[in-house]
Amino acid sequence: MTILETRLRLRRDSGRKLLMPYLTGGVTPDWTDHLRALADAGADAIEVGIPFSDPTLDGVTIQEASDVALARGATTAGILADLSRSRIEVPVVVSTYANLALRGGADRFCRALAEAGVRGLIVPDLPLEEAGSTGAAARAANVDLALLASPATPPRRLREIAERSRGFVYAVSLMGITGEREHLATSAAGLARRLRGVTDRPVFLGFGISTPAQAAAAARDADGVIVGAALMRRLLDGADPAATAGFVRSLRAALDGVPAAAPADAGG
């Protein structure tokens, strides 16, 4: 098992609820200070987005963060160089769109991730059918390609996604795009439970999880949560690293108040 998955499992199995904040790479000149602050504030992994010109699964906040980062001249190579230099101890999972991952070939991309110390990869527009060669490239580079599951995914496909996903499974909590929501989607709990019924891999719920209370509610059924837009909105509004860390600490505290869930029903 890879370093990322081993680490996430160990933490989960110790009764901890996992937290993966999302940060757009290159969004501010001091973005790696935010990265370190998130690590110190209790993140179990950090998702770093490499911004794409046309993020079709992202709502206005991450669209804006991507535009800001690109306008600042963010590139794959630049973000990876920043990551290499930052040397944070918390594992980094890169997320980006297929065009950036495939541009110079998936092999080269995954090797570059590994050389920068990145442990995992999320490419939302590479579903099961299209993920084969990138999955192989990631495996060869010791990078975990985590796949997405959604509330609309039928049972057999869900099982296959869970089997072929590496590191963790990204459970998309709702039928929609990224962005803050008033309430945790009603579809979240069911999807997390279905996934935990078919896999022992850590299951993270993401999309729309915006507040400590929502994070805690999501973590009742999932192993962890991913929080993106809520954090990026604060950052775009001018939050400094201490402030983003404060928000992540509030998420951490809410998650730590969650009692460890009973194991999912066997055979589910």
Binding site: P127, L128, T153
Partner: peptide, 9 residues
Amino acid sequence: RYVPEPLIP
């Protein structure tokens, strides 16, 4: 079919 999982079905 390079779409995110929610659009596959």
